[in-house]
Write a protein that binds this DNA or RNA. Structure first.
Lengths: 158, 158
DNA sequence: GTCAGTGCAAACTTTTTGCAACTAC
DNA sequence: GTAGTTGCAAAAAGTTTGCACTGAC
């Protein structure tokens, strides 16, 4: 993640902490930086490892506390998928759409104006929309190819 | 859930087990029936409780194994939300859209032709679409009203 | 100096696993 | 009879909590 984004989210965190009378601890900023140094989806474990590599030790509790804070500020999103819990830095994009392969678990972000539009258009009853998360499940081309190959093999056997 | 649906899903399970050389154990059918006796979202715990009420004891392992089986057959969907993990009976409707209140956690199913259409229209790269799950986050009218009342109160104080 | 925040370890929740016993086929 | 399944208990994974200590303000 580039430095400009990092300084922007740092700014968001700073002003949130200040206006709410919370403390600007080095841990929070170190964790935020580590989060925005990840590419794509990552686990709590990976954040911890990166921090250690940078010689910054934090406790599990602090790590989870900070992630919960970032989650509330929507500086990260959390995905609790079949393969486990993953986080993702998400500054400035509130709604998200992913395609997930049900065979290998590979997850890719999808950008679709049509879907955005459709959600926008949809009127919900007794509800004020804020943002959405969508998971489109299916089979990626790699797994599809494997399946096809498999089937051919089995047919030859018979 | 009505009896017709129950017998249909039982049928689906039966034929799956038969064609795959798996066993039609009483546990599997008891659990499936309990799942389809729930209304709306439910937890593993609730399924267990209903089974106990019916004098049918199953181990945790069997419960989870069966749910995993039903998940694969798409007789249930699993939601791993902030408030915990919930399951939902879902025969014959593959894609799902929910509105979730980020304040009280209330979840309601949304039926939107527009969204279905939009997903249908969206072309994904190197991916064969199957079904989707969408969560629209926001604030429900009840919580919205509470917030508004709260604000008025605070303004009066000042 | 004060209190929010941290580290630590233990607790807790949820889910999985290994193994012996059981049973559907 | 023989695998596929189950029950049990222990383990694993993921997350929270209580408490003493620390450090940002």
């Amino acid at each position: 993640m580039n430095e400009k984004v990092k300084s922007t989210v740092e700014q968001i965190l700073t002003s949130y902490l200040e206006t709410n009378g919370l403390r600007k601890t080095p841990e929070r900023f170190a964790i935020l930086d580590a989060v925005y140094s990840q590419s794509g989806q990552f686990t709590i474990e990976q954040v911890d490892k990166l921090l250690l590599k940078r010689n910054f030790r934090v406790s599990r509790a602090t790590l989870y506390n900070s992630m919960r804070l970032f989650l509330a500020l929507r500086l990260v999103v959390r995905h609790r998928l079949a393969g486990g819990t993953f986080y993702e830095a998400c500054y400035a994009s509130n709604s998200h759409c992913y395609q997930i392969c049900t065979l290998c678990g590979k997850t890719t972000i999808v950008r679709s104006g049509e879907i955005n539009e459709a959600v926008e258009q949809t009127r919900l009853r007794r509800f004020h929309k804020d943002y959405y998360t969508m998971y489109i499940y299916g089979v990626c081309s790699t797994c599809l190819a494997k399946q096809t190959r498999m089937r051919r093999k089995n047919q030859k056997k018979e």
